[in-house]
């Protein structure tokens, strides 16, 4: 039994020529126990899909089941088994964090201790006693995550879960997702940030303008699309190791020399360390290195055929064009970039 299955799921607002299509004919299957990334720019229909799964909005056409229950007549059964971290919410400012969790636990007849939940999301007891009105965005996000976990859900739905989180918070969130996955929970992870989806998901579906473009593993996507990430190494002198030698490293697809340094394109993130190591061994003076992730836009360009000439555009370039997420400070489209170096 799939955790999520949609058939011809369509949502249109308005009627006739005026109708706005939010989601078009979505056929999606997410297996039980899977961590599924739902990737797409803001406005692609990700939240609409989640709203349809929770019977927050009603489909124009098609239907959906969650954990075998039909989202329409069996809404209550669905909600009993699902934990949700929505995007863009306010909590109840005058209540303490702990009270929020007590309420969440009571609502679901749970027996978890609020303290255990606070600890899992990295909030201390002192924070738990404070009214939520005093919380930062990141703390609210952590608390909402704890509430989503409070009923020990079989399916965890996360909508842009990294909003407002600092790198440390993002790491905590990713650890929680992996932990839940180990316990057999299915995770549906919606995001517009490729790096974050790539960090935790088994499979990814790409949604663009209300339509599902493709479903594949991250590696599969990169291979099919022919877009990898790029390592830019700044070196003081000529590299001791030859370009050919670097190209031969497993996972490296291309090496070119440019003004700002050596550009190494790869599909396997583990190749980076080997490349840097080789260069250092060859006595090249490595001044600095930087990682430029292939962006969601690159994947889109590759899959939707739009902007085909710019198929290998990189993050730094794409950001100059004014991204749709410019208002969301703290959300860097290559959010996983800096941490990836640590791994």
């Amino acid at each position: 039994m799939p955790a999520i299955r949609t058939r011809g799921l369509t949502k249109r607002y308005g009627a006739g020529d005026e109708a706005v299509v939010a989601l078009e004919d979505l056929d999606l299957e997410v297996a039980e126990g899977e961590v599924f990334g739902f990737l797409g720019p803001n406005g692609a229909g990700k939240t609409t899909t989640i709203d349809l799964l929770l019977d927050f909005v009603r489909p124009t056409e098609g239907d959906a089941t969650v954990l075998g229950y039909d989202t329409q007549p069996e809404t209550d059964a669905v909600r009993d088994r699902v934990g949700v971290l929505p995007e863009g919410f306010d909590l109840w400012n005058r209540s303490s964090g702990r009270r929020h969790l007590e309420f969440a636990i009571e609502s679901q007849d749970g027996d978890t201790e609020p303290e255990t939940l606070l600890e899992r999301v990295g909030l201390d007891r002192d924070a738990g006693r404070r009214p939520v009105g005093d919380y930062s965005k990141g703390m609210s996000q952590r608390l909402a995550m704890a509430m989503a976990l409070s009923g020990d859900p079989d399916l965890l739905i996360l909508d842009e879960p990294s909003g407002g989180l600092d790198p440390h918070g993002i790491r905590t969130m990713q650890e929680i997702v992996r932990g839940e996955a180990r316990r057999g929970t299915t995770v549906f992870f919606s995001s517009h940030i490729l790096g974050q989806v790539a960090a935790v998901c088994d499979r990814v579906g790409i949604l663009d303008d209300g339509e599902l473009v493709t479903v594949d593993s991250i590696e599969g996507l990169r291979e099919t699309a022919g877009v990898g990430s790029r390592l830019v190494v700044e070196i003081a002198s000529e590299p001791g190791a030859s370009v050919d030698e670097l190209t031969a490293i497993d996972g490296v697809t291309d090496v070119t020399r440019a003004e700002d340094g050596l550009h190494v394109t790869y599909t396997d993130p583990r190749a980076k360390a080997t490349v840097v190591h080789r260069l250092v061994e060859s006595d090249a003076a490595v001044l600095d290195f930087d990682i430029e992730e292939a962006t969601l836009e690159d994947l889109f360009a590759a899959f939707t055929g739009s902007n085909a000439d710019a198929g290998l555009e990189y993050e730094t370039d794409a950001r100059l064009e004014g991204e749709e997420d410019s208002g969301r400070s703290g959300d860097r489209p290559f959010g996983a970039g800096p941490e990836e170096v640590d791994r």
């Binding site: 709203d51 929770l54 019977d55 927050f56 809404t75 209550d76 909600r79 009993d80 699902v82 934990g83 949700v84 971290l85 929505p86 995007e87 863009g88 919410f89 306010d90 909590l91 109840w92 309420f103 969440a104 609502s107 679901q108 909402a144 509430m147 989503a148 409070s150 009923g151 739905i157």
Partner: peptide
Amino acid sequence: QSGSLRILFGLSHN
């Protein structure tokens, strides 16, 4: 409007 209704629904309320 604030989106907390989604949280309530996520907590099994209808």
